[in-house]
């Protein structure tokens, strides 16, 4: 399984990689911004995306909107965000995200969500 992590913070990407179950670490691609993340998605071959919401130039909501419903039907996106407003998960899921994890992501949270969306 090829996993894409989209977050402008290298620290956040490290946190997430640390929280990923071992089988998911074999093929991880990182994008340090939304546009790069969309480029990588456009190249194909991504099976699962972890997406930050608060990024410069283009935020995670805009990434979800850009991917669109058709792409998101086949590409599960898990939002990982420090935005803990109650509306944030609702907005993200309304745009097609499968799940929402609050930062900093823990191994337990990630495993639960991966099971919930059926990829673990």
């Amino acid at each position: 399984m090829r996993v894409l992590i989209v977050d402008d913070s290298s620290t956040a990407r490290r946190f997430l990689k640390k929280a990923l179950p071992a089988p998911f670490l074999a093929d991880v691609v990182e994008a340090d911004g939304a546009r790069r993340g969309l480029e990588i998605c456009g190249e194909g071959g991504i099976d699962l995306m972890f997406l930050d919401l608060t990024m410069p130039e283009m935020d995670g909501y805009e990434v979800l909107a850009a991917l669109g419903g058709v792409r998101l039907a086949t590409l599960p996106v898990i939002v990982v965000s420090g935005d803990v407003q109650t509306q944030a998960p609702e907005k993200a899921k309304a745009l097609g995200a499968r799940a929402f994890i609050k930062k900093p992501a823990s191994k337990e949270q990630v495993e639960v969500v991966l099971r919930e969306i059926g990829v673990l």
């Binding site: 913070s9 620290t11 935005d83 109650t86 930062k103």
Partner: peptide, 21 residues
């Protein structure tokens, strides 16, 4: 700086949630 940014991002997320609530 990157780590501080992520720490602040989480802190500001809590502040935004408090304001939103």
């Amino acid at each position: 700086q990157d780590a501080l940014g992520e720490i602040v991002n989480i802190g500001m997320g809590r502040a935004a949630a408090a304001l939103a609530q």
